[in-house]
Design a protein around this nucleic acid. Sequence first.
DNA 1: CTGAAAGCGCTAACAG
DNA 2: CTGTTAGCGCTTTCAG
Lengths: 341, 341
Amino acid sequence: MQTRSKRPLTLRDVSEASGVSEMTVSRVLRNKGDVSAATREKVKDAARMLGYVPNKIAGALASQRVNLVAVVIPSLKNMVFPEVLSGISEELDDTGLQPVVGVTDYQPEKEEKVLFEMLSWRPSGVIVAGLEHSDASRAMLMQSGIPVVEIMDTDGEPIDTAVGISHRRAGRVMAEAILAAGYKRIGFMGTKMPLDHRARKRFEGFTQTLAKGGIEIADQEFYSGGSALAKGREMTDAMLNRTPDLDFLYYSNDMIGAGGLMCLQDRGIDIPGSIGLAGFNGVDLLDGLSHQLATMDACRFEIGQTAARIIAARNAEGAADEGQVVELEPTLTFGDTLRKG
Amino acid sequence: MQTRSKRPLTLRDVSEASGVSEMTVSRVLRNKGDVSAATREKVKDAARMLGYVPNKIAGALASQRVNLVAVVIPSLKNMVFPEVLSGISEELDDTGLQPVVGVTDYQPEKEEKVLFEMLSWRPSGVIVAGLEHSDASRAMLMQSGIPVVEIMDTDGEPIDTAVGISHRRAGRVMAEAILAAGYKRIGFMGTKMPLDHRARKRFEGFTQTLAKGGIEIADQEFYSGGSALAKGREMTDAMLNRTPDLDFLYYSNDMIGAGGLMCLQDRGIDIPGSIGLAGFNGVDLLDGLSHQLATMDACRFEIGQTAARIIAARNAEGAADEGQVVELEPTLTFGDTLRKG
DNA sequence: CTGAAAGCGCTAACAG
DNA sequence: CTGTTAGCGCTTTCAG
């Protein structure tokens, strides 16, 4: 058929090979406009024969249309984000739009850099995690004139559109459930991430609601790095030694919660009678554990879907519902580690 | 400063605002060629003031250079692939190249589609998981004239360059360790994925080596879908009921292996005395378990790094070491679940 | 050090 | 239904 070539093929090559004008070749290859079945076949054969791959760079420049959606997230290691991505990817599958992922490592400067890179490709839409961005980032996004959907969080002022859950509310709901169940001596363990605003908001909602119930966090500890499971185990062990009278442990994610669960089991503690536990995220990775950990689903997949749907709609219709905030309802799962109040 | 605008800014706008020719503006913004400090400042100020974001589409078309590296992987849910991605991403960080990810869901037709999409952006390199591709995919990749690195696997004929481990060998090494430890009645559990060629090759290497030792797999089971931890637990339970005299369980991944471990613990079985276990992948997610599972590291991060380094080098130098195969050495970890022979 | 002219490969907008 | 003519916004190349 063909071999490793130096110069990539162009429309002109297909045009010459098929004896049809470039313009008509272009139309056939895009299924645009009416072309007779005969020429259509000729063109398609020639293209296939040569192994022609259209140049989207040129196409995009000429048509001022790019079928890319920029997706900017803090990390790929957290499982939460690949799940959101799946939602986006699935929803975009039939729209002709394609997600392009950028990772910020939770660093505002890197976010700025990534956004700049992304925007310089003039994508059809931008989906970015969180509502907190540098002034420069916000300015860029506004200025771009591109539809922007901020995801995961609704506690704040969106640039354009937001889809997510209220983490403050999530913290509050969990606190209410714990209070209702009659737990009094509560310990908290979480990641040491000053830049994880969503974890911070959950923590705030949590402590504020406890405070209203007249309760203060009895002990707390933050970690960073390492295997979450191991850390959860270690921290829990340390905390129980330090503050033996705790009757509830709230973890900022399910993975360290699972570590804590193992620690309690090793100690032979009655769950949730003597001590209750809860995590956050609804990670189904952990479904095989001996106890099902109480947790709160963060609607990751659905958030991705919804955000993608909004971008796709805007892309099709032109301007539309700007400035909306879609707040999804996280569901609380009691599992086997939190008594119903 | 500026507001939501309709028309995106162009070089011309910056040129007019700064009173410097477009060409010189372009040079400043790319740090290319010599420009006086004075005009440089003028231009930079104007660009910042306006909030100018260069149009890479136009730049790429004009310069015939795209700073994108296509990365095509089967899935994002498997943790293995995000890890490879991290390696790629990190290695690419200082090269000016940017990864763009495409997901195939283990489907050859989707791989073909994704590759076509990717290639139509004329990336500087392609990193693709696996050595098995449709004829059309292979043809596209060859034809493109773009550096191609196939990753994860070295058992086969690469299109251009390959970086990975030999899964056949990995299976063999594990089998040898198990034989050396004196286990005789071996059960296997894995995913039911006809298209996961690497898992298949491991299994082949494993069974062939056992055969040489005069041993045949005593029982086996394949699953698909669901939480791996839970599945591992269920399958192990079922298998032990069915074939109670097993003395070793080999799992195709660490997650189901962990589920199996829990099952054995529930049953109060002595590990690794009465029954040994091993998984595959070296997932540090699981570090907090009561026993450290025997496993084999797949060198994911390193594979990503190496592949990225090769692409970056080719991009800088022009043509170079084509056709090489880099086989990395997976390390066997005995942990607490496999006796040393 | 700076600028003018000529495309990159494709598609929009018209004519036939 | 098919072809022609202009660019898209930038960079290359070549003159100053």
